[in-house]
Amino acid sequence: MGSAGDRASFSMYRAEMMSREPISAEAERDLAQRWKHGERDAGTRLIEACLPFVVTVALEYRRWGLPMEDIVQEGNIGLLKAADRFDPERGCRLATYAAYWIRAEIREFVARSYRIVRLGSSKGERRALRVYRKTLERDPEVLGKLSGLSKERAEELLPLLSAHDMSLDRAPGEEGLTPLERLVSNDSDPEEKTCAADERMRLSQALEQVVSELGPREQSIVQQRWLTEEPATLEALGTSFGVSKERVRQLEERAKKRMRARIEEISREPLAESA
């Protein structure tokens, strides 16, 4: 599952990525805006600036025994998908925005690989698995001699042998989840989170607008009854306004109806062009 040469190559790539200087939020925003306007070079620089972050995320999955260069490549695919959707005006960095897609691509790759790869396709491999389980031998030369495999083949199998307890489809653990289920993220994707945030902002603005259209007493009732951690009683408000508790209740109900009707009206209005 990755030769010594592959590991050395990945180590060099990792060192190169980690030596890169990060770009500022302002520079990132400028590159993103230029890319949206068709400057391919700006897009390339934007994505390359985020490659070290992909390596950092990929290292979280090294315990699965799969080639790190393949895991990084899958993460890079996730980064490309995120970069294509990235809007610098949302106020977050590309790395933060891309984390969901990077992990999603890597998780899918890990799950797919572990469902395809099976130990024991030959007598030597089955023998190597038995030997490893008994001795936990990590020297590929010794493992090869004990199992009848070549040193090179034993070296390729060792990462998977050491990860045999990570079978994705085994019985659930203490958390009640299999490793495969723990790979799955239940988080909403950034698009859903952004839309939800926009909707909350829109409703908040609509509420402020509606309250401002109420009369002075109705505004006071709304503020003291609904928009405070310790709502005032109808009786207390009645005393404050010099009216009966029943009159305050009527004013409150009238305010509710007016606000409900106005919020429904505002919700049907089209979004502004800048939204």
Rank of each mutant, 00 (worst) to 15 (best):
E265G: 05
W101Y: 13
R217M: 11
R202H: 12
S267W: 01
K256I: 09
R90K: 11
L207M: 15
G38K: 05
S150D: 04
Q250L: 08
S274P: 03
A32N: 04
Q33K: 11
V184F: 14
G43C: 07
L177P: 04
I71K: 00
E192H: 13
D165M: 04
K257L: 12
G91A: 10
E156K: 08
R260G: 06
W101G: 00
R29C: 11
A42G: 06
A95P: 00
S113W: 05
I266Y: 13
L59C: 11
A261K: 15
R138M: 08
A154R: 08
P216C: 04
M166Q: 09
E28N: 05
R40L: 14
P22A: 10
Y100S: 00
A83P: 11
T233D: 13
A25Q: 10
Q219A: 07
E156W: 04
V222K: 02
I77Q: 12
N186V: 14
E39K: 07
R118M: 11
M259P: 05
A154V: 09
M1P: 01
R14T: 05
D189P: 14
G238C: 02
L168P: 08
L146F: 03
A272R: 11
T44M: 13
Y132G: 01
R103P: 02
L79H: 06
Q224F: 00
E253N: 09
D198W: 10
S24T: 15
A83I: 12
R40N: 06
T239F: 01
R254A: 13
C50K: 03
S167A: 12
E199C: 09
D189W: 05
K256C: 13
P52M: 10
A196L: 15
V131P: 02
L227Y: 06
P216H: 02
Q33G: 14
L46Q: 07
L143F: 03
F109D: 02
G65H: 06
D165H: 12
A104Y: 12
L183P: 09
V55M: 01
E74C: 10
T239E: 15
R202Y: 09
E273R: 05
Q73I: 02
A98T: 01
P190C: 10
L203H: 10
I47T: 11
Q219V: 11
P231L: 09
G238M: 08
N76R: 13
K81L: 12
Q223W: 01
A99W: 02
L119A: 07
Q219L: 07
T44D: 12
E192K: 14
S122G: 02
S240G: 01
R103Y: 02
D169S: 04
I23E: 03
R85S: 13
L271R: 12
A232H: 03
E213G: 01
A171C: 10
A206S: 14
E213P: 05
E26C: 03
A83H: 06
E155W: 03
A275R: 13
V55T: 08
A128W: 03
L160I: 12
L31T: 04
G2M: 04
V222D: 01
S122T: 15
M17L: 14
D41C: 06
